[in-house]
Amino acid sequence: MPKILTRERLVPNLHLLEVHAPEVAGKCRPGQFVIVMPDEKGERIPLSIADWDVERGSVTAVFLVVGTTTRKLAALKAGDEIPVFVGPLGRPSEIAAFGTVVLVAGCFGIGALWPAARALKAAGNRVIALIDAKADYLVYWKDRYRSVCDRVLFSSRDYALGSKEFVPGPLERLLEAEAPVARVIAVGCTYLMYASAQATRPLGVKTVVSLNPIMVDGTGMCGACRCTAEGKTKFACVDGPDFDGHHVDWDELFMRRKSYFDDETRSLCRYEETEFP
C-alpha cells in the first residue's frame, strides 16, 4: 500500500499530503488529479496533484478539510499507509506559449495550480498569479509563486494583503492593465471558478476552470462526474477536469455537488462522535 511521506498543516484547515507513489510521480502532468481513499471503509475522493518528485517517487496534494474523508486524511501521519492513491487521472492542462496568462488560485487551488504556473513559465509565458484568500494567514506557497511568476497579486477579505475584495474586481482590473491577456486559468472552490468565468466573459478572455464534481472511480466508468459543458454531457474525470468556464452549466454543477449533503452531514457527525466522544 502507498505510504505517506509527509502530512502537514499548511495553514488552518488546509493540509499537505505527500505520498510515495513512484509510478504516479513518473507520469504527472499539470492539471491532473489522483483518487485517494483514506482507509478500507473510506470514500474515494479526487485531489488535484499539487507537486511531484520523480527522484523521491512522491506525489503531493493539498486539501481543504470539509467532511469525513478529508478529516480522516488530516488525521494521518507520515509513515501511515493508505489503501488507494491512484493516478494520474484526467487530461493534463493545455500548456503552450500563449503570451500573458493570469492564474486565479484560491484555497486548495493555490496548490493545484502550482504545476501549471511552473510549466507555463517554462513554456515562455508571462505568468501573473492572483491569489485569493479570506485573510493573509491563509495564503501558502507565496515564495513558490514569486519564484516563477512575473507578478503575484492578492485579493482577500481583510486589508492585510492590500485590498478587501473578492476576485472579480481585481481580476477585471488586472485584465485591463495587462491587456492583451491570452487566457485565465482559475482553480479553487466552485464559486471562485464561477465568479472568475463571469468576470472574464464580457471581456471575451478564454477562461479555463478545473471542475470538481463528485466522483467515484475517476476512469470514466460510472458517470457520477457528469457535467454539462459546451451544451453536452461530459464526464469530468476523462473529458476534463479542465473545461472552458464560459461554456459550463454552473447551476447544474452547484446542484450536483450538493447531492449528498444530508448523508455527508450524518457521516461527519458519526465520525466526530466516534473520534471525539
Binding site: K41, G42, T69, V216, D263, S267
Partner: peptide
C-alpha cells in the same frame, strides 16, 4: 447502473455510515 451498483457493492454503501460512501 454502474455508479449505483459500484456505490453499493464495491464501496459498500448498503452499510453507510459504517462505510463512508453514500
Amino acid at each position: 447502473a454502474n455508479e449505483y451498483l459500484t456505490r453499493v457493492n464495491l464501496m459498500r454503501a448498503y452499510d453507510f455510515p459504517a462505510y463512508d460512501t453514500p
